[in-house]
C-alpha cells in the first residue's frame, strides 16, 4: 500500500519534464508583476544609468544581475534533467516523425496481438 501511495504521489517522468520546461518558461517570461521580461528590464536599467551617469551605484552589471541569474537558473534546470534535454534536442518536426513511426509500430503490435488472440480462440 505504501509503495502504491508513493508511486501515486511521485510525478511521472513526463510530468517531471513538463515541470522542468514549464519552470524554465516561467523563469524566462513575465510570470508576475515583479518578474518582467528582459528587454524592458534592460531598457529601464539603461535609462536609470543615462539619467544618473555619475552615480557609482548605478551599474549595468548590478542591474542585469537578475537577468543573468534567471538565465543561469534556467540553464541549471535544463542541465539537471537529461530527459528534458533529450526532449528539446529534437525539433518538433523530428518528434512528429518519431511519433508517427511509434504509432505505426504500436498498430502492428496490436494487430499481431489480435491475430494471436484469434488463433488461440480458434484452437
Amino acid at each position: 500500500m505504501t509503495g502504491d501511495t508513493e508511486k501515486e504521489q511521485e510525478p511521472s517522468s513526463g510530468e517531471q519534464q513538463l515541470n522542468v520546461l514549464k519552470r524554465i518558461h516561467e523563469i524566462l517570461t513575465k510570470h508576475s508583476s515583479t518578474q518582467t521580461e528582459f528587454i524592458p528590464l534592460l531598457y529601464h536599467s539603461l535609462k536609470q544609468i543615462s539619467k544618473h551617469p555619475n552615480n557609482s551605484s548605478n551599474s549595468l552589471d548590478a542591474a542585469t544581475s537578475s537577468i543573468r541569474h534567471r538565465l543561469k537558473t534556467a540553464k541549471t534546470l535544463l542541465q539537471q534533467d537529461p530527459a528534458a534535454i533529450e526532449l528539446v534536442s529534437k525539433t518538433p518536426e523530428q518528434w512528429q516523425l518519431h511519433i508517427q513511426e511509434k504509432k505505426i509500430e504500436l498498430e502492428k503490435k496490436t494487430k499481431h496481438l489480435q491475430r494471436l488472440r484469434e488463433s488461440i480462440q480458434k484452437q
Binding site: S13, Q16, R23, I27, S32, S66, T73, D81, P82, A83
Partner: peptide
C-alpha cells in the same frame, strides 16, 4: 525583482524514461 526558487529534487536522473 523576484529570484527563481530552488531546483526541485524531483528532477532526478534516476526516474527518467529515456
Amino acid at each position: 525583482m523576484s529570484t527563481p526558487g530552488p531546483v526541485p529534487s524531483s528532477t532526478s536522473v534516476a526516474t527518467l524514461p529515456f
